[in-house]
């Protein structure tokens, strides 16, 4: 078995390439999705029933469809209605849309648990609209929802593996590539598994650090 591992590891450039593709796909998704999610959280918390219900419906629908199916839809259906995309574009669009819905729901949950005094205090000092959100509410949401957001980040990493089916050369794709060349599937996927484990636990570690910082700053 050892020499199988050695054989698999000769393809380390492929593994590394896959690893980095996964990392930058997930990192970009995280940044873009979080920003969009903040925007989407507003209608979710709207006092107007129609806006709230409509955004609720959109978010719930996206969250009840499997990610892989959504990826297929972006890759195959969009060209059919005239939008032709590269596989990378399709991948990013799917990741962003899917996770915006999840992040928005998480932020909404945190927002609904936020004591109303926070918003009142902000308004008392003249903050309204976007400014109110950016300076007062937003930071508190992120602190409160930190662990859950971190959890979703890990989900992003795991969902990114599905993108191998639309030929995105992320980690699982590369691992599959290696095993089909070298015929050591057991060892190849164990290596991939280790890399995913490292990646996911790094995210969890970072979330822990942020939580600590948040703890120190939290008003008792």
């Amino acid at each position: 078995m050892i020499e199988h591992f050695a054989r698999a590891l000769t393809q380390w450039p492929l593994f590394l390439n896959g690893f980095f593709n996964t990392v930058w796909l997930c990192a970009s998704t995280a940044i873009v999705s979080l920003i969009l999610a903040m925007l989407l959280a507003v209608p979710l918390m709207s006092r107007l029933l129609t806006i709230r219900a409509a955004s609720r419906f959109v978010v719930d629908s996206i969250r009840s469809v499997p990610f892989l199916l959504l990826a297929y839809m972006a890759y195959y259906c969009l060209p059919a209605i005239g939008i032709s995309l590269s596989s990378w574009a399709a991948a990013l669009i799917t990741l962003v849309i899917y996770n915006t819905a999840y992040f928005a729901e998480i932020l909404r949950g945190a927002w609904s648990h936020l004591p109303p005094q926070q918003e009142e205090g902000g308004r008392a000092f003249g903050f309204t609209g976007i400014r109110l959100f950016v300076h007062i509410i937003g930071p508190q949401l992120f602190i409160a929802a930190g662990p859950v957001l971190g959890n979703q980040m890990i989900q992003v990493i795991k969902d990114s593996a599905f993108l191998m089916v639309i030929t995105i050369p992320e980690l699982t794709f590369r691992a599959n590539q290696v095993q089909s060349i070298l015929f050591v599937p057991f060892e190849t996927f164990i290596i991939a598994g280790c890399l995913y484990w490292i990646l996911c636990n790094s995210v969890e570690w970072m979330v822990h650090r942020l939580e600590r910082v948040a703890e120190m700053r939290r008003v008792r």
Partner: peptide, 23 residues
């Protein structure tokens, strides 16, 4: 548990399907 929670399902499926037959 730690490993399973960090592994994508699709990667696991490939591991089980291809990896087990290699074994």
């Amino acid at each position: 548990v730690s490993v399973m929670r960090a592994t994508p399902v699709i990667t696991l499926a490939l591991f089980v399907y291809f990896g087990m037959s290699a074994m």
